[in-house]
Design a protein around this nucleic acid. Structure first.
Lengths: 238, 238
DNA sequence: TTGCTTAATGACTGACTGGTCAGTATCCTA
DNA sequence: TAGGATACTGACCAGTCAGTCATTAAGCAA
């Protein structure tokens, strides 16, 4: 991308080079607390890896974005893979910790809606599909990363949803019939739709532009089962 | 890995070299029709890329698996990326063409179950999660591949499901209330569950081992909405 | 059998990049 | 202000691998 800053072989080549060097040199070397540098590098890593993935990204690029030298990165992380791993880990944790401390609502149904809204908001950030793609893409190379992600994000959300749904059942708002696995179903629908929404081609083909409308559809469908009290004829075709 | 076969500089170097060459030479060079060679290479590419992904896989590995030399691959494909792309394209197409010609059932509900069964079978092959992962992983590098995949696989299946559902509505088996977007919802649940099932950690945590039971759960949930005729209170919490 | 065409081979090359480390600049203490 | 400790730098190195091409041999026609 912006690799050729130094190269254009016009007559002012020297000027450009000089400027580039100058700007590089002018930025005075600064010492920062370890924590701050680490955060700086992690942020740059998210930006760089997020665009190109683990393999396409050069450590030099991460260094450039972070505004440090390549060597500095190796002072804080033993290698490229470890940096990648830590970047995923922190991004996932940071987001979940922030959401965990949100206030609950005393009314179960209201709280259910709050929770679903929070989840929908989370998976519709630009950050989420990036992390998701990176984790999936890195699966064969780092299976433990997908396990971390699964336990730390997917399963945790499913448990939160299930707890909230169970509260609505206890409350009498939801029918108990389909409750047991319903969090899983809701999670599936929300997740899949959010991921589709991140793909421009799917977005237009399926008319998913309006995020609120999509959520509304999913909830209407979901509540169609949960509020229903009529016994349904089970699937005869196994 | 097996690069150093020729190198060990012991005293029997010559013998080793001769043997290595001999074994390589013993496999007699064969000429094959272009189509056959291409298929051979594509199959090997699926095997190799499927394990390690685009970047981890060496062209030499594909060649070794295919039983041809590296140079031969470049007679059939201009470069590594083109081979990868073509491998995805053919695998997706081959599978869908095979399923397309299945016989329909005159009864709408029976045909719906047949279709869902076929889809569930497809996304639960070991092949599907591999292709899915590769496409997702390659997204930033080859967005057109994801578009091809989306249109050729996801959207096509959603349309088939929707048609089948609409037939059940016309038939009076399904309530029309939630029909419009229901294929999308069903597709989401099936897809997400199938992909989870491919991750060992998720599989155990969510008790997804029994594929038939999972499908049964999803269908029961889905039919809970579609058979329901009670008007439901819409979500008050927008 | 001879000789031609071309599929097939694999040693080689050039470009690339992860990781290193000798040297430099900053900051802090005395 | 001197001098030690160390955060930081970036030129360099060694390994890797996609892609090339001179050479080989299979298969065919005469």
């Amino acid at each position: 991308m912006s690799k050729n800053v130094v190269s254009p072989p016009v007559n002012e080549t020297e000027t450009v080079q000089t400027l580039a060097l100058a700007s590089a040199r002018h930025e005075p070397r600064t010492r920062r607390p370890a924590e701050e540098r680490e955060a700086q590098i992690i942020d740059a890593a998210f930006e760089a890896f997020g665009v190109d993935g683990l393999n396409e990204t050069r450590i030099d690029d991460v260094a450039r974005i972070a505004g440090v030298s390549k060597g500095t990165i190796y002072l804080y992380f033993p290698n490229k893979e470890a940096l990648f791993r830590e970047m995923i880990r922190r991004t996932v944790i940071a987001r979940l910790d922030a959401l965990e401390n949100e206030a609950h609502d005393p009314d179960p149904l209201t709280d259910f809606h709050r929770l679903v809204g929070a989840f929908w908001g989370y998976i519709n950030t630009s950050e989420f599909p990036v992390i998701h793609r990176l984790v999936i893409g890195a699966l064969p190379r780092m299976p433990e990363l997908s396990q971390f992600f699964a336990e730390r994000a997917s399963l945790r959300w499913q448990r939160l949803l299930q707890t909230s749904i169970d509260a609505c059942v206890d409350d009498g708002t939801f029918s108990p019939e389909h409750a047991p696995r319903s969090a899983c179903m809701l999670h599936s629908m929300l997740m899949q739709h959010a991921l589709m929404r991140a793909l421009p081609s799917m977005c237009t083909a399926m008319k998913l532009d309006d995020g609120d409308a999509v959520l509304e559809h999913i909830l209407t469908f979901f509540l169609g089962v949960m509020h229903s009290t009529t016994p349904i004829s089970r699937a005869q075709h196994a």
